[in-house]
Design a binder for these strands. Structure first.
Lengths: 226, 226
DNA sequence: TCAATAGTGTCTGTTAGACATTATGGA
DNA sequence: TCCATAATGTCTAACAGACACTATTGA
């Protein structure tokens, strides 16, 4: 049995789950790595190995820039994963999810490629967990952080915004209710531009511009998953 | 400048934030560590150093048992912290929050002690962050996971349950609304026991027993923090 | 008896969702 | 013209919160 050198196994990796909207669903950025032994090619979530003395936040930014080619519009830590096997044989991996706005999803080289979540190649088990928890983390923050807006361009139609929410939540929303709640929260402001898309009536473009309202706290919810 | 040996700095710590209800607020378990150099005493969040080859989840369980003396009733990972200084000089720390039910909060030895959150001794900056995010993580999961029930004994009164929610949320709740929502969610079932506490009318005891109802999803909320 | 807490019924304003209708462009 | 999409108004059932009230114990 050949083993990695001992010093290497003591490091950790920072893995990046970069997500972007694509074809009415989410796509994730994967990196091609060829196995040095059997020359097989496989796709992995991009990762970067820690360096002694470098701060976690800096490693994360380095990892995101290396994979997406730009500083992250929005990113957050998902957690630490150390149980299932990692393609780099790391004992511990810290995962960051980064959101890339619609239309900004480019690739650095042939070694990177966006994959629809419905058409993923097989991944190492630890990276499957990472991906699943990352999507869940984004979805769970949907009501507290403007993640949906981070996936949209600077101006967007209300239908696009609603589709983004539906995409992230995995369920359909009611149009009139959605817009009423949006208006009540004063989260968007209209521009004086319209966009015609195919057949129907053109839609007005909006931009994200939260008014600092005091949000009315409401009663407890008991939406237990179990 | 004296430095830790290089091998040690490459390890990581698993830090435990053990929480229990106490005097109408939360208390956290701290450990006394005396500094080898200047013999000063300071309180820290208990931590355990990783061992090569040991799985993260196992280290976490080991860390929780070492500090609380028992396997965790409920625990979850909060995240990885690597920015501010750690009392053990670790580069990276993985934090787990563990909930200890009311009345089960014992101490292993004189080296451990429960502190009310309002009466904390000064902590290292990284551990301040850990504590703050741990409490926030518990609060944010309140509607999805039965964390409030994990802090209560097996049977409890509805007033105790409501007080636990108020404690975790940091705000008062409306009694009738709370009970209506609870009944609608079918989360508790009554026992045939009552408890008399001081003056007023005795309260019926309930136990946690979620009926597998299909929870009615509702519209989006826009409760942005920013 | 009074004080204190448990538990419930009623009312009202708010809101989510259903439905319908108007508006406006392209085919 | 027909069709597709945007945008909005109306109705209803559900719900949160306020308030009041009854119930039941200890002091």
């Amino acid at each position: 049995m050949s083993r990695e050198p001992r010093g290497k196994r003591q490091q950790y990796t920072v893995d990046v789950v970069a997500l972007t909207p694509r074809d009415d669903q989410l796509a994730v950025l994967l990196e091609r790595r060829s196995d040095s032994k059997d020359k097989s090619v496989r796709w992995v979530l991009p990762w970067t190995v820690s360096r002694t003395g470098e701060i976690l936040a800096d490693i994360a930014e380095r990892a995101i820039i290396r994979s997406t080619g730009a500083a992250p519009i929005w990113s957050t830590q998902v957690g630490a994963f150390g149980d299932a096997p990692h393609p780099g044989d790391a004992e511990l991996s810290i995962v960051y999810v980064a959101l890339v706005p619609m239309g900004h999803a480019t690739v650095q080289s042939d070694d990177f490629q966006w994959f629809l979540l419905s058409e993923l190649p097989p991944l190492a088990e630890r990276q499957n967990q990472m991906l699943q928890e990352s999507v869940g983390a984004v979805r769970d923050r949907l009501d507290l952080y403007p993640v949906a807006f981070k996936l949209l361009p600077a101006t967007f139609t209300l239908s696009e915004l609603q589709h983004m929410y539906e995409l992230l939540l995995g369920r359909r929303l009611h149009k009139a209710s959605f817009r009423r709640a949006l208006a009540a929260a004063a989260l968007v402001e209209p521009t004086d531009e319209w966009r015609s898309e195919g057949r129907g009536r053109p839609a007005q473009l909006y931009r994200f511009g939260p008014k600092k309202r005091r949000r009315g706290r409401r009663g407890v919810r008991f939406d237990l998953l179990a």
